[in-house]
Nucleic acid binder design. Structure first.
Lengths: 151, 151
DNA sequence: AGTTGACTTGAACCCTTGTTCAAGTTTGAC
DNA sequence: GTCAAACTTGAACAAGGGTTCAAGTCAACT
């Protein structure tokens, strides 16, 4: 039979994968990116503390919200060494994430409204239309804006 | 001096790039992807019709909304050969894009609400928390869910 | 005709979030 | 001690949306 440590306090990557539903490849990837950590056995295999299960849950939940792994990593880095996220931690992170979500929703609503306006005016000017050129990336040296439609 | 066709009805890639604020590399990329088209000179250089300026505006505006280039391409493919987008075209596309935006906004709002709930309950179960496991990807063979927090 | 800036190409590279593969090693139950 | 399952690694690939580079060609002005 295969090695299945019965009551160990540490878990293998296979067990973590099975319990979390996250493929082992993704777990290794998270580890490479510094999101989770493991101890190594004498034979160089990973052993995870049980807290990591909660960390992975946090990673997945945050990721499903569209938070980039790098940002999730920054948040997790603030945890004390190898600790599971406490309720306080979760609450603090949740504020950031909620703010993020709200900002994203607002941005989309803005764009939708601007878009609707643009349909009305039919401009799509490279210089003046915030939709075409949101960051004002154009220097603004050219003659005049022009219209999208001949009509 | 460099070649700058004074009053030509066709424009070079450099001119298109300058007028649109879109790097030439991106314009070539769009062309490879079939979003825009060009005639070639005897010397194999691109020459664009002026309509393409409006098409590029349309591409950028749509892209800033988060519409993938492939979808924008599908929309543009419905234009009659080398035509600039008409008001009708714009109106039709706008319906699609608006629907897209509204769907995205709703999805974000749903997630935000679920997230807020989750903060309240502190569960983050791999099996039951829609936030951790939105697609119900886990088979559901394991014992019980557990809590994220020790508290 | 010469100069020089603008143009051409394909290939390689960037980021993100992973998956898949091959080849070899460890672990643990029997 | 044996055996198979589980583990290890690095590299290559994916998609999306491009950028940058090298090496060479073209176009326009003088």
């Amino acid at each position: 039979m295969a090695p299945v440590p019965a009551q160990a306090t540490e878990i293998t990557i296979g067990e973590l994968s099975e319990r979390s539903g996250v493929p082992a490849s993704a777990l290794r990837f998270y580890e490479r990116k510094g999101l989770i950590r493991s101890r190594r056995t004498a034979g160089n295999q990973r052993r995870y503390r049980r807290e990591v299960l909660r960390q992975v849950a946090f990673i997945r939940a945050s990721h499903h919200l569209g938070i980039p792994l790098s940002v999730i990593g920054d948040a997790l880095a603030k945890l004390p060494e190898g600790q599971a996220p406490t309720r306080e931690f979760w609450a603090r992170a949740s504020e950031c994430w909620s703010a993020e979500l709200n900002a994203r929703i607002k941005r989309l609503e803005n764009m939708r409204d601007r878009f609707t306006e643009c349909i009305g005016c039919g401009c799509l000017s490279f210089e003046q239309c915030g939709l075409v050129n949101p960051g004002d990336q154009l220097g603004g040296k050219r003659s005049g804006p022009y219209r999208l439609f001949d009509a």
